[in-house]
Each structure stands twice: as C-alpha cells, then as structure tokens.
Amino acid sequence: MKIKVALIGNPNVGKSVIFNNLTGSRQHTGNWPGKTVEKKEGYYVYKGYEFEVVDLPGVYSLNALSDDERVAREYLIDHRPDVVVDIVNAGQLERNLYLTLLLIEYQVNLVVVLNMQDVVQAKGDRIDADKLSKILKAPVVTTTATKKKGMEELKKTILQAVPVEILERDGSGAIHPPGDGESDDHLHYHPKYHHHGQYERLKPPSIKYDTSIERKLKIIVGMLEEEDREILDRFPPRWLALRILERDPDILSMIQDPALKTKLLEVVL
C-alpha cells in the first residue's frame, strides 16, 4: 500500500526542485482532469515504505477562484493525502504562512518545510524552527533544495508524520472504528467519500481563531448536524463552517435545503 504525499506551497518557493529531489526520475506528468493545470506525480521508497508524491500547483490561497487553487483544494478534500508537505519560502515567511494556516484548517497531517534557508542566512535573519514547530503543532524541516540540503531529514520527517495505523495496515481491516463525532475526536470523514474506504481520524486544528469566530463556527456545525448530516460526512466540519462563513460559492451550492441555507447565511462575524 502506497503512502500518499502531497506537496503544496506558494509559487516560486522551490517546490518543483524538492519534488525532483524526492522522486528523481521516477515521475510522470499529465493534466488534471478537465483542467489546463499540469499534474506531476512521482514515487520514492524510504525505509521499505513506498511513497506516492503529487506536486500540487503553486497557490497563495485555496479559495477555488483560479483553476490552480481549485485543483489543489479538490485534491486535499477528495483524495485526503496521508501527509501534506507545505513548502514555505523561509525568506518570505509572512506571506507564506497564510497558506500554512489555511492548510491547518484542512486538518491534514502537515509537514512544514522551510526552504531557501541559504537566502535567510545570507540576509542574516533567524527563524526558530523548534518554536515554529511547537506553535503549528507540526514538524518543521529546514532545507536548501537547490543544494539538496535537508532531503534525508525531510524523508524521515514525512515517514514519522504518517499515522501509525496507516503504516501498519496491509490493505485489510479497518483503520479506525467508525466514529460518532463525540468530544474532540474528529472522526468525521465518512468511508464512502474517502479513498481509503475507511473513517479518517482528522487531526485536531492546531491553531484556533479568536473565540468570537470559533463560537460562530460551532453554531454553523450545530445547524448542519441537525439538518444536513450528509454534507458533514464529506468534509471536515470546522473547515466546512469556515467556508460557509466565507460564502464559498462551491460549498453553498451543495446545500440543497434553501431554508437551511438562509439560516446559515444569517451567521455573520
């Protein structure tokens, strides 16, 4: 069973270089179905495990406004990669972390790569990777992809980020017992929408927003729990609530009941 890894990051962060470093020549390119966006896939083996790497298009956000953003977002939602590697241009941390925060909303297994470390050092800046890792509750690897520095470390970290139950599964048996959504255990991905055909244990969001926002998110999730379980099975609930708050047209168009939709749209910040 292959472990699915997705690479994502802003444009011009050296994502392709990292992709090439990881997979070497074992890659093939094509187009995303129905899109003019290039799709690159590759493979590598590390410590006896096989990894399938997908290079998502470079994006600044995940609003599904452009084709690139739509491709990246649909992949994260519909294919639920086992590990998502967020490649960050360490020289432009502020702009790049925006995407990192959005990825945290997807509740995926995140690995953050601080790339272009050489530029940071040349500028004399200092980034405390340990502290960043603690705040984001995700492993942080520093690399200089153009000089192939940090690639072994990255492979090791990706492997460590894979949940144990996925490593141990042999294609048979359930990964998780079906969840009931109680407490903080986000067991919401319904098997019929998941490529594993199993429930997925969503990673709890490591960064929460202001309590006034989180309260609104809970209200929205509550409404959906009462009236549209179907859509809750398909998406991470908090992510869904955030998209509804942002008036995401794709998500809103999936809510069939007009009365519910009106009610949801009444929740404002």
């Binding site: 941390l93 502020e94 972390l97 925006y98 925060l101 959005l102 500028k123 004399g124 800046d125 200092r126 980034i127 405390d128 990777a129 502290k131 960043l132 705040i135 984001l136 960064i207 927003y209 202001d210 926002i213 955030l242 708050l245 942002e246 910040l269």
Partner: peptide, 20 residues
C-alpha cells in the same frame, strides 16, 4: 477571517522570527 489569520501570523513571527 483574513485579518484574523494575519494577526496570528504576526504573533507567530514575533515568537519565532528575528530579522537580521
């Protein structure tokens, strides 16, 4: 929401980043 995210990024940078 975007402002909130940038506020958080500001906090993160304060703790983990030191410009040269």
């Amino acid at each position: 929401l975007a402002d909130e995210r940038y506020r958080i990024i500001g906090d993160i940078l304060c703790e983990a980043y030191e410009p040269g």
